[in-house]
Design a protein around this nucleic acid. Structure first.
Length: 460
RNA sequence: UCCCCAGUAGCUCAGUUGGCAGAGCAAGUGGCUGUUAACCACUGGGUCCGCGGUUCGAGUCCGUGCUGGGGAGCCA
């Protein structure tokens, strides 16, 4: 007999005989003569209440069942005479699949997120983390749905790359060399003897590859893991994270801003529809303002303003900042959060940043001082999306690379895309975990990724 | 990497001026005829993060290391 998921049973509109559920015991409550078991199988937030009467076989064994144990229960789905649940399962048979000894670290009480991080292999069995990872799964699907509906093609860009300066952060080195016996040439590691015959790293972005495919398939996106070896110790950074990067041919900066706004609204609306039960947990226990924030995003037109106007607003704000606001310097976290959380109180898109603080591939504006870049800022998180129109003019791109000291030889293939049939195009990158933080109100990025990788931490 | 804070029972934490190691929850045992993180009673449970120092005496003070958290930078 096949198990029925608890999600399915709780949606039943009539009693059912002879069903079987399999899951993990959250708690057991006994009275003389019977026991209540709360079973969770991960299919939804809610538990199935099971009532086991002392008349059933092996009742003495049932009284030994502990929190965390895996069980299979056969019985009848009946309307519950008690308060708090519509349905309960009256057990005919209870089989212990795997007992959890009293060393099981999850208790029938709230644990701190810090403690749960030390048992990341078990924390997904809690209500909160179960909810996080169900939402994470739905959100992944929603991303594909959004792009598929709009004719975008999904591109699997490589994780291994030979380019050593894609412009974003320190990179993890990948090698097949014997680390105890590294071949040297002129005092340096001789990568010509390594697997690829060249120094190799984990990717920090799929963008440059995605651009090649945008200039072939039109509208494309990537969605995959990304790696940064930065020694960042904050609640917003991990060394391995997932990023979504759409790239559109025949598209300018305004098109990219339009898409980013439509994208965030679609995903937020999707999760509110598809994950309401799980979201309610976060609205109740994690962030009391969560639904207001999410509905605020859905109902507002994102404020769009140039970097210059943003600097003006900050200067006129009379707000004391730790770092001064100065045209030509990048905005600090405190500045971004002031704009989105206090001044506008809604998502904000800032565009046309000074070219000296942005990477080589962003398109130079006619003023020759700024680039067609944009950042989307949301309350509680700050920057969630960064993007730009790409520099499609060969001579200007090459001059910019020279100016910034980049090797045109290493990027020969990227440059060739501007030599043959170049076309204006744009795109952006969105941190998948940062969106999950926004949608759930979870304040530490380590709590929205199954097994977080951070400096000095690679357990699990 | 920098600044700040913390580390005491399985978990969350208290521990006064340097003077016998504590509570709640969890666990174990027993009780209870419909419970909702059930309830009631009893019981067991400690490398006070490690190392060094000051002191008659250190959980407490000093130095140092490690781990965790908050903030900053970098960014998504």
């Amino acid at each position: 007999m096949k198990r029925t998921r608890i999600l399915h049973l709780l949606q039943s509109d009539k009693p059912l005989d002879n069903v079987i559920i399999m899951g993990w015991v959250r708690t057991r409550r006994d009275s003389r003569g019977f026991s209540f078991l709360e079973i969770n199988d991960g299919s939804c937030l809610k538990n199935m209440q099971v009532i086991a009467d002392s008349s059933i076989a092996d009742y003495e064994e049932i009284k030994k069942i502990t929190t965390g144990s895996a069980v299979a229960i056969t019985g009848s789905l009946m309307e519950s005479p008690g308060k708090g649940q519509k349905w309960e399962l009256k057990a005919d048979n209870v089989e212990i699949l795997g007992i959890a000894p009293d060393t099981f670290p999850l208790q029938k009480k709230r644990h701190s997120d810090e403690f749960l991080r030390t048992i990341a292999h078990l924390r997904s069995r809690t209500n909160k983390y179960g909810a996080v990872f169900r939402i994470r799964s739905e959100l992944s699907f929603a991303i594909h749905q959004f792009f598929k509906d709009r004719g975008f093609k999904y591109i699997h860009t490589p994780v291994l790359t030979a380019s050593d300066c894609e412009g974003a952060g320190e990179m993890f080195k990948v090698t097949a060399l014997d680390m105890d016996n590294i071949p040297k040439k002129d005092g340096k590691t001789d990568f010509s003897l390594d697997f690829f015959g060249a120094a190799t790293n984990l990717t920090v972005s799929g963008q440059l590859s995605a651009e090649m495919f945008a200039l072939a398939l039109g509208d494309v996106y990537t969605f995959g893991p990304t790696f940064r070896a930065e020694n960042s110790n904050t609640s917003r950074h991990v060394a391995e994270f997932w990023m979504v990067e759409p790239e559109m041919a025949f598209s300018n900066l305004t098109d990219a801003m339009d898409l980013s706004e439509e994208f965030l609204k679609y995903l937020t609306g999707y999760i509110i529809d598809a994950c309401l039960d799980d979201l309610e947990l976060f609205a109740k226990y994690v962030d009391k303002n969560l639904m207001t924030t999410l509905e605020g995003l859905l109902s507002s037109d994102f404020t769009r303003l140039s970097y210059k106007d943003a600097v003006d607003i900050l200067n006129k704000s009379k707000q004391k900042f730790e770092f001064e606001v100065d045209f030509g310097k990048d905005l600090q976290s405190e500045h971004e959060r002031y704009l989105t959380e206090r001044h506008f109180k809604q998502p904000v898109i800032i565009y046309d940043y000074p070219k000296n603080i942005k990477p080589f591939y962003m398109r130079i504006n006619d003023d020759n001082k700024t680039v067609a870049a944009m950042d989307v800022l949301v309350p509680n998180i700050g920057e969630i999306i960064g993007g730009s129109q790409r520099e499609e003019r060969l001579n200007i791109l090459e001059a910019r690379m020279d100016e910034m000291g980049l090797s045109k030889k290493d990027y020969w293939w990227y440059i060739e895309s501007r030599k043959y049939g170049s076309a204006f195009h744009s795109g952006f990158g969105m941190g998948f975990e940062r969106l999950l933080m926004f949608l759930t109100g979870v304040t530490n990025i380590r709590d929205v990724i199954p097994f977080p990788r951070t400096p000095n931490s690679i357990s699990f």
